[in-house]
Amino acid sequence: MYAFDIERPTTIADAAKALSGEAQALGGGQTLIPTLKARLADPGTLVSLSGISEMQGVCMSDAGEVCIGGGTTHATVAAEATAYPALAETASHIGDPAVRNRGTIGGSLANNDPSACYPAAALASGATIITNAREIAADDYFQGMFTTALDEGEIITEVRFPVPEKANYQKFVQPASRFALVGVYVAKYADGVRVAVTGASEEGVFRWTEAEAALTSNFSAEALDGLSVSADGMIGDLHGSADYRAHLVKVMTGRAVSAAA
């Protein structure tokens, strides 16, 4: 690692101030620290967000949304987001137990790894990403692989999830990294079904709108029968061809629909 200083602010305001210069935010560090070890980042100063208590925890908003502090670990979401069981279940399968004790929802969404689970959950749920500066709708937030609407130094302080009638996330893991080779999150709301796909596309997480339309009129796996996913723009690598990923999108969507609760 290159040398850097660590700052540990205890308020969002102090963190924002610390991040106004050349500094970089450190969430749980489960992705950033390996990146630093490979000397792929040289932040000068890291601003650790783990000591900010106002960014921790799970609660319900007056509008009935599940609100998760940006610094909340996956383990805490798994244990405490009981009002949104599919989200808690998703969190309980991110990484491994030790990673879940450190990794945070804010860190995951800020990084927007194209194979991460939370981007699919947030996009399929139509979540709102709240930062120290503004509120961003999930549909506007994800802007391609490792790219988001966040400005430099902007901190995800909270994520609000409207609770669907039914939802489920199906992850087909890449056997080495155990990230999603393809992950599909299906959420059924009163006003329609949303389907978000991670792991598959070179553009990062995306909504499969054809499936959404079909499932909105008939929420069953059979509704997908006539649909197909194009392999254009899908990731092809050691672990699976673009064709294979496109195929898995449909399989995992069907499974998520069948398992949705």
Partner: peptide, 23 residues
Amino acid sequence: DTSQCGACVVHVNGKAVKSCAIF
């Protein structure tokens, strides 16, 4: 060096964490 093998797991405040992925 990718925080996957778990040989470094310790407990911090009673929770398992990878000591190679925390400063």
